[in-house]
């Protein structure tokens, strides 16, 4: 498979003072399932923002389908539209992502911009609402939604784009367990259909479920390790060193004791 995303020695800092990413070099193949894991504040969201061309590296290069993506190249309408049109980004906080008056408007926004007809856009929106089980929200104002509903609408609003690459910041954040299961299955199916899925998480069980290629960001904002899901999950010593699993107290049968606990279950 050809690499569609390529980062070479990328560095990014907030206001030139606080480092968010250091010397990040990675390549993502078309159709890959790719995860960025790390503790809070390790730079996962900044990495997704760079891949989506929302922020630009202080140093290093980012190539999307061999086109260098920077502020200047995104000024070109063709490059800009190709990048935006092929990438759907589901933010961690759905509040910031929803900006249309109603749920239906929200779902129609992307396909209409992509040049789909009104009928095709409506068809997509209705199918997506049905698939996520939120058809009843169709005419609801986005300000009148609960947290979980907002998250589902945010997911739906990106799916109607039918993006080639789906960027998901913390897929499990803010949704109930049933929707989490649905969303994990949806990601698997989309990946089977050939779409590239790039997500960030600090939930190791999600890595176990989706079996992606993994890069682990350290507290120093560098790539500490990369490999397959099983290579990462089986290296307990490494996971302890990057604080992905840690020792904490548990209560079993009335007895409290402390031990390392990963909070995920391997499939046998």
């Amino acid at each position: 498979m050809e690499n569609i995303i390529s980062l070479n020695n990328v560095n990014y800092s907030y206001f030139g003072k606080i480092p968010a990413l250091r010397n990040i070099t990675l390549e993502i193949a078309k159709g890959a399932m790719f995860a960025v894991i790390g503790q809070n504040g390790s730079g996962k969201t900044s990495l997704l923002n760079i891949i989506n061309g929302l922020i630009f590296p202080d140093a290093g290069d980012y190539f999307y389908k061999r086109i260098r993506i920077d502020e200047k190249s995104l000024g070109n309408k063709n490059i800009h539209n190709r990048l935006r049109g092929s990438m759907g980004y589901i933010f961690q906080n759905p509040d910031i992502q929803l900006f249309c008056p109603t749920v239906m408007d929200e779902l129609l926004f992307a396909p209409l911009q992509l040049g789909c007809s009104t009928d095709e856009s409506s068809e997509r929106a209705l199918q997506t609402l049905a698939a996520l089980g939120i058809s009843y929200l169709k005419d609801r104002s986005v300000t009148m939604l609960s947290g979980g509903e907002k998250k589902k609408v945010a997911i739906a609003s990106v799916l109607t784009m039918n993006p080639e690459i789906l960027l998901v910041d913390e897929p499990l954040a803010g949704i109930d367990p049933k929707t989490q299961t649905f969303f994990v299955e949806l990601l698997l199916e989309l990946n089977h259909a050939g779409k590239t899925i790039i997500f960030t998480t600090h939930h190791l069980d999600l890595i176990d479920h989706l079996q992606p290629q993994v890069v682990v960001l350290s507290d120093e904002h560098t790539i500490q390790k990369s490999g397959t899901a099983s290579e990462i999950l089986n290296d307990e010593e490494f996971l302890i060193s990057v604080n992905m699993i840690h020792e904490h107290a548990h209560r079993h049968d009335g007895e409290t004791h402390r031990h390392f606990h990963a909070h995920y279950v391997f499939h046998s």
Binding site: L54, R84, I96
Partner: peptide, 17 residues
């Protein structure tokens, strides 16, 4: 919030609207 909202908006701006 304004900056994050802007990034979310930017990520979905495809053609000139």
């Amino acid at each position: 919030t304004v900056e994050e909202t802007y990034l979310a908006l930017k990520s979905r701006m495809i053609r000139n609207i």
